[in-house]
Design a protein around this nucleic acid. Structure first.
Length: 277
DNA sequence: CTATGGACCTGAATGC
DNA sequence: TGCATTCAGGTCCATA
């Protein structure tokens, strides 16, 4: 599920609640992606000083150390106020991690358990380094330009769709937004990344930023599991041009939208608006 | 180095 | 109704 917009929406909603709060307890249930040697008792008492994001990771910056939280395919974070100790928040199926604060609780719910929580002494130590340093450019950062995108694409012969998904050039574009961005850029998903001409790379850059921004403003996409920490669903899924629209007419040219497989993932595109090279 | 397929896990939807 | 198959927002890892 969560691609960059969903993670960013989660971060924005969470930040004012969590920042400055003292962590009283961290509870971990069923193992997630990695059975990490987090020692919850060592973290209690530390305050959260910031809530950041890198790619699809939410970063809870503690007074000492950081926690990386990844939502995997089906994860979401829930912020639950706890009025009194007696009135405990209701547990739900697939709640696997919880952070208890003074008057509220943060809960990670993740049915498929592809998500992860990782502790590291800092951004550049331990497992966090390994996970973060291989990530591509942040799409909302100044380093992401038509030129730097073009240079990144030049290193890959794989189809542009798969290169976008891989996150080694630019992060945050997942399966929904990759199809949407390519449609808006008029680029065929099978075109080798290194064969994207400069003019197309410029459109790709512009629409990557535009689509992701619009999705953040709409609260992300809710296909099934995703909700912001307060329970709000996203609305981007109702404005997709191609994703999930196989067989339906293109909103621009009327050609039926195609669905194909690329690297075990579905890709949606309009053969009329995204002609083969 | 890049590219590719399998693995991880659960639930919902579809088909016979 | 029951059971098997397919699909779903990600990304790590082993293998070419």
């Amino acid at each position: 599920m969560p691609e960059l917009p969903e993670v960013e929406v989660t971060r924005r909603v969470l930040q004012p609640h969590v920042q400055g709060q003292k962590l009283l307890a961290l509870r971990m249930g069923k193992p997630l992606r990695w059975p990490l040697g987090i020692h919850p008792e060592e973290l209690s008492g530390r305050r959260v000083v910031a809530v950041q994001r890198r790619g699809k990771y939410i970063i809870l910056q503690l007074e000492q150390g950081i926690l990386l939280v990844h939502l995997g395919m089906s994860g979401s974070l829930r912020w639950v106020a706890v009025p009194t100790a007696a009135d405990r928040p209701s547990r739900q199926l697939h709640d696997h991690v919880s952070w208890e604060f003074e008057d509220a609780e943060l809960v990670l719910n993740d049915p498929r358990r592809f998500g992860a929580v990782v502790f590291a002494p800092s951004m550049s130590e331990g497992m966090a380094t390994q996970l973060l340093q291989k990530l591509g450019m942040e799409p909302f950062s100044p380093e992401f330009t038509p030129e730097s995108l073009g240079q990144g694409l030049a290193r890959h012969r794989a189809p542009i769709k798969q290169v976008l998904l891989a996150g080694t050039v630019v992060v945050g574009v997942g399966n929904i937004y990759a199809s949407e961005v390519l449609f808006r850029s008029g680029i065929h998903p099978f075109l080798p990344a290194c064969a994207v001409p400069p003019a197309a790379a410029e459109r790709l850059h512009r629409h990557t930023v535009n689509v992701l921004s619009q999705a953040v403003e709409l609260g992300g996409s809710t296909l099934r599991n995703f909700h912001a920490p307060g329970g709000e669903a996203g609305a981007f899924q109702s404005v997709t041009q191609v994703y999930g629209r196989a067989g339906q007419p293109c909103r621009l040219c009327g050609t039926p939208i195609l669905r194909v497989q690329q690297g075990q993932r579905s890709t949606f595109f309009c053969p009329g608006c995204q002609p083969a090279v």
